[in-house]
Amino acid sequence: MNVQFRLKAAVLSALMFIVFVVLWHGLTFQQSHETEGIPLTSEQSALLKASGMSESDMQAYAAKGLVFEQIQQIAGLGLSSADIDAAGGIESFGFTTGGAAEEAKTGFPSPSLVWEEAYEQIRDPFYDKGPNDKGIGIQLKYSLLRVGAGFLLAVLVSIPAGFLIGMSPLVNLAFTPFVQILKPISPLAWLPVALYIIKDSEKASIFVIFVCSIWPMLLNTAFGVASVKRDYINIARTLELSKFRTALTVILPAAAPTIFTGMKISIGIAWLVIVAAEMVIGGIGMGYFVWNEWNGLNLASMIFAIFVIGIVGLLLDFVIGRLIAVTDYKE
């Protein structure tokens, strides 16, 4: 029954995805239209010839859809076909559709184009062609390392601090104003400050991850610890457990699901933020990859990267979700 239910959900998911891709394909599908040549009149040919353009050149331009005025301009500038080729070829000038440059050349990429791009990237995820061009696997590795480092630091700080805040109403009240002020600050706003203070973009991005992941964990830990049932603590008290052992063997397992829920929120935010931070800082990482593709306006590549970011986010969420499931308990 349960398996069947899940299967149904999976089929539904797949169906939605297929509909999405088909829609996407339909919306981005473009008929590759033939360029319609505009034949030159004999007077026009004569005029062009007089400006020094060869017969074959002018016929070639006309066949590619350039209007007479444009061919005349080329002739007037004294540009040979070799010159035009050196400048990227007449096809790159945006005239070949009949003169209107405003017709977007680079529309939204079709699914097949994105797949081609994705395939290129997935086939060789660890290539290294210099500091600014590395495979998606290497970019991912760096982003994950940064998130890992910042997140781990945040865990090391926020769990003990959360315990302190959760176990003492006094500390809780004293900390509240700071937490409330610091929490809503966009992590990216810290970036310039971190860059200025830390003077190292790598550490600054780790710091930003640290700052953004600390709050949900801190608050959830404090909340989880504060709301541990009095009864559980009474058990520890009647058994004369030390404060430390009580924290470790009673409060921690009791609050663990809440703490891990905080971690789940944190890692989600951290993954969101690292991409944004890397877009600003550059260098290497998924954010840099997206930025670099944006810089080249390669939408297909960006969409692929967005998929990858989403899937990794999903995996991170899943891993912590497993931890929650393992530590969760029913009363």
């Binding site: 009474n234 029913k330 009363e331």
Partner: peptide
């Protein structure tokens, strides 16, 4: 003045640690 191992308690609401 505080709980101790010299006194064992069976709680009215049978407090058990639910994760154990």
């Amino acid at each position: 003045d505080r709980p101790g191992l010299d006194r064992a308690v069976v709680f009215q609401n049978h407090s058990l640690l639910p994760w154990l």
